[in-house]
């Protein structure tokens, strides 16, 4: 079943046509990778799906519902979460508080509890903290829960952003260059966690330059170049495709 369907998406910035006529169907429960050279429009695609930008034309359908005109925060409630290419954590907040903030759309207690902190309130708080700790354990940051997010290493910050996005309980998780700046061991554990996330039923869209990671994690790959659709297929097909190879100037992919 298709979870997200894009049809003829266009988005330009001034004279730059960042995304031109991109269509794709992302099947539920898969890892879908978007690759391409720098400036190909990959991040713009994620921004269109998450609602940071609205497309000039074309349509997005998520679980049978159109996303047209919906702002980013409304899409989170539908089940779309994301991370950012340039890390955007709440740097002055603790690691735990970063993840707890991710539960924003899942507090379901009557409004007066915010004033009087009754039993339901305390149960909700305890549940959020327990869930947040579980997510931190999942990404290997449980021991760092009290640290300020800004004090984490680069790799740890990427994993924290991953955990924070998962806190929104997404159906579709968009991750933009999660391996950037990670060492080999960190890339391995990232791979593991992406696959675990998929196993838990979350559909993942990953934009990534690290081909080893992409080839190991992706069920399908969309290749973009200058905003355009260059190729789409399984990892093995992508590796064999001459047009893809030439877009990467012959080296990187093999």
């Amino acid at each position: 079943m298709t979870l997200l369907s894009a049809k003829g998406l266009h988005k330009s910035f001034g004279g730059v046509r960042a995304v031109r006529d991109i269509s794709c169907d992302i099947p539920e429960g898969t890892v879908f990778a978007i690759i391409g050279p720098n400036g190909a429009g990959k991040s713009t695609m994620l921004n269109l799906i998450s609602g940071v930008y609205q497309p000039e034309s074309g349509s997005l359908t998520f679980a049978g519902q159109t996303l047209a005109g919906l702002p980013a925060y409304r899409r989170v409630r539908l089940g779309i979460a994301r991370t950012f290419q340039k890390i955007r954590l709440f740097k002055q907040l603790s690691v735990l508080d970063n993840v707890v903030a991710g539960f924003h759309v899942h507090h379901d207690i009557p409004a007066w509890h915010y004033l009087l902190h009754g039993g339901a309130f305390r149960r909700d708080q305890a549940r959020c903290r327990a869930d947040a700790m579980e997510l931190l354990a999942f990404v290997g940051l449980a021991a760092r829960r009290e640290a300020l997010a800004g004090s984490l290493s680069y790799g740890e910050q990427r994993m924290l952003e991953f955990a924070r996005a998962l806190a929104t309980k997404p159906k579709l998780l968009l991750i933009d260059e999660p391996a950037a700046g990670l060492n080999a061991a960190e890339v391995d554990s990232l791979l593991d966690r992406i696959l675990t996330t998929r196993k838990q039923g979350v559909t993942v869209v990953v934009v990534e330059h690290n081909m080893e990671l992409v080839m190991n994690v992706a069920d399908r790959i969309l290749v973009m170049d200058y905003g355009q659709h260059l190729f789409e297929g399984a990892p093995a097909e992508v590796q064999k495709n001459p047009a893809v190879a030439s877009a990467y100037l012959g080296g990187e992919l093999m």
Partner: peptide, 29 residues
């Protein structure tokens, strides 16, 4: 004090720290 020690406080500080991130967590900034 009650408000800032509730999820409302978490929401407001998230907006203070980074609005784009806050929106990506479903917060109507």
């Amino acid at each position: 004090d009650q408000l800032v020690r509730s999820p409302i406080g978490e929401t407001l500080t998230a907006i203070r720290e980074d609005e784009v991130s806050a929106a990506s967590l479903g917060i109507n900034t």
